[in-house]
Design a protein around this nucleic acid. Sequence first.
DNA 1: TAAATTTGCTTGCAAATTGCAAGTGTAAAT
DNA 2: ATTTACACTTGCAATTTGCAAGCAAATTTA
Lengths: 141, 141
Amino acid sequence: MNKNTINRGVQRSPCPISTSLDIWGDKWSLLIIRDMMLFNKNTYGEFSNSMKKIATNILASRLVDLEQSGLISKEEHPDSKAKIFYKLTQKGIDLLPIIAEMNLWAAKYYEIGPKAKEVNKMLKKDKAGFIKSRTAVLKKL
Amino acid sequence: MNKNTINRGVQRSPCPISTSLDIWGDKWSLLIIRDMMLFNKNTYGEFSNSMKKIATNILASRLVDLEQSGLISKEEHPDSKAKIFYKLTQKGIDLLPIIAEMNLWAAKYYEIGPKAKEVNKMLKKDKAGFIKSRTAVLKKL
DNA sequence: TAAATTTGCTTGCAAATTGCAAGTGTAAAT
DNA sequence: ATTTACACTTGCAATTTGCAAGCAAATTTA
């Protein structure tokens, strides 16, 4: 068993910001969520390939953590039994507004890549619409 | 000089989520921001007292980090030269929508305290209004 | 005005978390 | 039947966080 799991058993305080950070406030968890949410990545290999600098043991333990926190679930992959299809739960999908605001904030103050720019453009045009349509897509998985 | 400073020199990738996490994606930075943003805390002592479990060296280095990232600035305290008045910059104030969404998300899935509940109530009633009026208050400091 | 207290830190060391490189078992492709 | 793909695990090093103590300058108290 992997020993890199973060202590997410107890909340540090009853503050929602603190609680949120307890769940996904590390360097990698939210990037996995982002990959699932915006870029249709759903397998260990896709995550590993997308976040090239993540250590494989950390990726593995984050997937366990996120599943235990109820943000993602493991499903059978339609194409192969060797693969696992990771899927966002409703609780995970509900992080979309946070991801959206993070995109808007960072885009205002930093250079961002082309894929993020596309998302940013849609968010600026119609944030609520983007969240709604994206939510619908994710629910159908 | 304190050696606990996080390496925020280079972005891991041009992704806005990754960039955001590089700036404030640790266990404490955003709690300092929250204290300034929602609860009118502005000094080292107020932060230390509010986040009782934060180590003093970590608090000190986070304040340095946040200043270097341009989210906060050091000002003279009106009451005393022994105190330092930490103030949110525009870049810091612009994190308010993220803080707001985090409150809404955590309140949906976890128990939160009374002060957070008040904020939550206002956000549910009129999110845009809350952000606007709070922004105005913070700018006047 | 001298002593005690408040304030915002620093220092040294221990504990926890993350990162790296290599390896393992099962499923699928050749 | 053998090689490759996939999802991990393992052991150890490096980085980050946490704890306890200490310290200088400003302020309050006696």
